[in-house]
């Protein structure tokens, strides 16, 4: 469904030969991106929006095409980063490494909490959250 977005890689890597922190320079790259780079196809934006369950207006789709294309191009800087087989992804990506579990027991909470939670739902009836028919 998606074509890999080739073509954009070469230029952005050349650009990133200089420091990322050079923000002023970055603005000029950014201006160039908007004009030089082929944008993400409109159909792809619509497809992603559907996956994300977002209804976008025609205007939003156009703006998203521009913004996402520039942002995704910017991510190509990561291709320069060292690739190390030891850097495998583990479930923890933070410093919190031990499992935190609790005993499998019923925890008593005030009835008012359940009521508060149901009250927060936009559509409810008899203490239940109402949902449109799925089928």
């Amino acid at each position: 469904m998606f074509g890999l977005r080739g073509g954009s890689v070469g230029v952005s890597q050349q650009s990133y030969n200089k420091s990322i922190i050079n923000i002023c320079q970055f603005f000029s790259w950014f201006a160039n991106f908007a004009t030089i780079y082929s944008m993400l196809p409109k159909e792809e934006i619509i497809h992603i929006a559907k996956l994300a369950r977002l209804e976008l207006t025609e205007q939003e789709i156009e703006k998203m095409q521009k913004d996402l294309s520039a942002i995704l191009d910017y991510f190509h800087v990561l291709k320069k980063a060292k690739s190390d087989p030891n850097l495998r992804i583990t479930s923890e990506s933070t410093n919190v490494s031990s499992n935190a579990t609790r005993k499998d027991l019923v925890v008593e909470r005030p009835a008012s909490l359940a009521n508060n939670l149901v009250q927060a739902a936009p559509d409810k009836k008899d203490g239940y959250v109402k949902v449109k028919a799925i089928l």
Partner: peptide, 24 residues
Amino acid sequence: NLLDVYLKSRGQGFGAEPKRRIMI
């Protein structure tokens, strides 16, 4: 249907930046 509730609530409820980040 239910999908319409999702699409429209989120489409009208979120501003430009959350939408952008959800899309990315």
